[in-house]
């Protein structure tokens, strides 16, 4: 199995370290060609406006949509979750529109509101540490989207088919649960590329 980590800006190295710990082969993705032969792709944290611009300029925007359409597994964290959403608010902006959800940017406030929480998930009995940094909020999800964790009644970890999104940063913790869940999604499907 081979996983790509979108490496145009943001905390892609933290995701790579996570994959290393889990013993999974990975490549950094900067061009459409880098997507060849991948079972899944991680969209890291960073600035979603920067990511969207560079995705469009490099031709990756179309290539990632195609990968998703062919059944490739995708996982977005924070800025990555914004890119995954069908609708983005505050302000409205372009996204890849792959998951049936509406995301509000910087909904918890500026950096002063960034914090770490211990919250329950449907993935295991113990609560998980979740690092929120200038986090977006998932305002609503469609019927086909499974909510795996919530903060204050709003979804923070969701899944739809072979796609996952987290508004926090599992890659900045020691816990591998969420990445393992994503790898399972990637393993179960057919190779898209």
């Amino acid at each position: 199995m081979k996983i790509g980590v979108l490496a145009i800006q943001g905390d892609f190295e933290a995701h790579a370290k996570m994959l290393e710990r889990l013993g999974v082969e990975y490549v950094y993705v900067r061009t459409p060609e880098d997507l060849k032969g991948l079972d899944g792709l991680i969209l890291p944290g960073g600035e979603s406006t920067t990511h969207m611009k560079l995705l469009a300029e490099t031709g990756l925007e179309e290539a990632v949509r195609e990968m998703a359409a062919k059944g490739g597994a995708l996982f977005g964290t924070c800025a990555g979750a914004i890119l995954m959403a069908r609708d983005v608010k505050a302000p409205e902006q372009e996204s890849l529109g792959l998951m049936d959800m509406t995301v509000v940017r910087n909904a918890y406030g500026r950096q002063l509101s960034s914090d770490v929480f211990l919250l329950p998930t449907k993935l295991k009995s113990e609560p998980l540490e979740m690092v929120f940094i200038r986090a977006p909020q998932i305002e609503k999800v469609g019927a086909g989207v499974k909510v795996l964790a919530e903060r204050d009644g709003k979804p923070v970890l969701v899944e739809q088919g072979r796609m996952m999104a987290a508004t926090f940063h599992p890659e900045l913790t020691e816990d591998t649960t969420i990445h393992e869940r994503f790898l399972k999604l990637a393993r179960n499907g057919k190779k898209p590329g």
Binding site: A7, Q9, G10, D11, V131, I133, R134
Partner: peptide
């Protein structure tokens, strides 16, 4: 500790930019 993590965390998000 958590405050330090989100401080460094935001810097992590700016990498490559």
């Amino acid at each position: 500790e958590n405050l330090w993590r989100v401080k460094v965390g935001l810097a992590e998000m700016l990498k490559g930019g």
